[in-house]
């Protein structure tokens, strides 16, 4: 997988919760495209339109707090978001992001520097976020997480590496 992406940002504040990202009533679906229709619905159609025109979500601290619903990450993938850059993540959202192939990058200074609509470039291999000529670094993911992301998420990873070996870590 290419370790670099470039795209337009949509910026949110602190403590964006899972019920706002994808309301509970839509959890009857696990289809990324269906879920995408309702991503950020509580914030209204103008926000949803900007979301659809973006590839990177930028947020303050504790992004994705609340429920364990994996669809909070799936709906962003469905709408075309490739990465979330935040000051910090709620732990379940972070896992769900990796597990659905969505990049979750912690870089507080970059978040401060990015404005809504900015174009950013993220390099996972190098561990950099670039915006408006400024470059911010973050520690690269551990190898184990990179392998899940590179496979496109936990389920494709499992299918490729774990199942063929008999399904358990010990073979």
């Amino acid at each position: 997988m290419d370790s670099r992406i470039r795209g337009r940002c949509i910026v949110f504040g602190d403590n964006v919760n899972t019920d706002v990202i994808i309301p509970g009533r839509y959890l009857v679906s696990i289809d990324p495209k269906e879920l995408a229709e309702h991503a950020f619905e509580p914030l209204g159609p103008a926000v949803q339109e900007r979301l659809r025109a973006s590839q990177v979500v930028v947020a303050g601290k504790n992004f994705g707090c609340g429920s364990a619903r994996e669809q909070a990450a799936t709906c962003l993938v469905g709408v075309g978001i490739r990465a979330v850059v935040a000051k910090s993540f709620a732990r379940v959202f972070f896992r769900n992001a990796i597990n659905t192939g969505l990049w979750a990058v912690v870089q507080p200074e970059a978040v401060e520097a990015i404005s809504d609509g900015d174009e950013v470039a993220i390099d996972l291999e190098a561990g950099t976020v670039e915006v408006k000529g400024r470059r911010f670094t973050f520690p690269p993911y551990p190898e184990s997480l990179r392998r899940i992301l590179d496979a496109g998420g936990l389920i494709p990873y499992l299918a490729r590496y774990v199942i063929p070996q008999g399904g358990t870590a010990n073979g």
Partner: peptide, 13 residues
Amino acid sequence: GVGFSEVTATWVA
């Protein structure tokens, strides 16, 4: 708490 993919993976692995 974890997501449903992770539970599925743990069912298997």
